[in-house]
Simulated assay, not measured.
Amino acid sequence: MPTNRQKVYVSLKKDIMNGTLQSGEMIADRPLAEKYKVSRTPVREAIQQLRAEGFLEVEPNIGTRVATVEENRVAVTYELLGRIEQAGVEQLSNAVLGSLIEPLTQLNAEYQQAIDNSQWREAMIIDREFHQVLLRRSPSRYASKFADILRTQLQPTEIRYYQQQFPKKIAAVADHTALIEALNAEKIKKAGRLARRHRMKQARALDAFLE
């Protein structure tokens, strides 16, 4: 049975990953303890673990907040994310590829539908899930973890970008399709390169957007 610390940790991480807690948002143990109906000790332990993992950070003389990234580091962070995703994809085994094609194809179709329906927030969430699914089967236990941290830190910029550029400059569907086709053909190295190239394109687009 999960401990109170584990329950709080899972709930907090989920709220961070789905955007309920926004990057840069301050958190404190007392209101969280009241929310989860536990003592402050398991809340503090969960916060400490999330800080160690990079999802939370300490603002000196202020408190703890959801991790963020400065605008002048956005492009570099996307490039790093691309390298992590490339490494994670290139470690996939042929044995797991078959189980990836269907969910990735379905998510890409849902992404296209969200674009067609001008649902920018849904499109952003689906895009994130697409990349999460891609790395969950990687034998590298760190690839998915580090990618999640970076995506969390990039979230405020992504929200602004999707809000202001959607749908005219959102063109990930074709990139996703090419990646799926490479995986389906068991061209894992090519899929890894495509994953990184996709992130590099996003880095350039966001860099131009922030200028």
Rank of each mutant, 00 (worst) to 15 (best):
E211G: 14
E181M: 06
T41S: 07
E25K: 08
L92T: 02
V66Y: 07
A95H: 10
A28G: 11
N184V: 06
K189C: 08
M200W: 07
Q164L: 11
L32G: 09
A195G: 14
A208P: 02
K190V: 15
L194N: 03
Y36C: 09
K190W: 12
V96W: 10
E85S: 06
Q6H: 09
T152V: 13
T152R: 09
Q132M: 06
E158G: 03
V66T: 05
M124N: 02
L32Y: 04
D127I: 00
K189F: 10
Q165E: 13
Q202V: 03
E181Y: 04
K7S: 04
M17N: 07
K13Q: 15
K7F: 12
D15L: 14
Q22I: 04
D15Q: 14
K187W: 00
R40M: 07
F166Y: 05
Y161Q: 02
V96L: 06
G98L: 07
V8Q: 02
Q163V: 09
V133P: 00
L97K: 03
S140E: 11
T20Q: 13
I27V: 15
Q163Y: 12
V69R: 06
G88M: 07
S11Q: 12
A114Y: 02
D116K: 15
N18C: 13
F146Y: 10
I125P: 00
A182S: 13
L12G: 02
E129H: 11
N4K: 09
E122Y: 08
L210Q: 05
A46R: 03
R5Q: 15
K201R: 13
N72V: 12
G98W: 09
L210T: 01
H176G: 00
T77H: 05
A95T: 14
G192Y: 04
R51C: 04
L21W: 08
L100P: 03
M17A: 10
V43Q: 03
H198C: 06
I126G: 00
R151M: 13
E34G: 06
Y111H: 12
E71P: 04
A147N: 01
Q6W: 11
V38A: 09
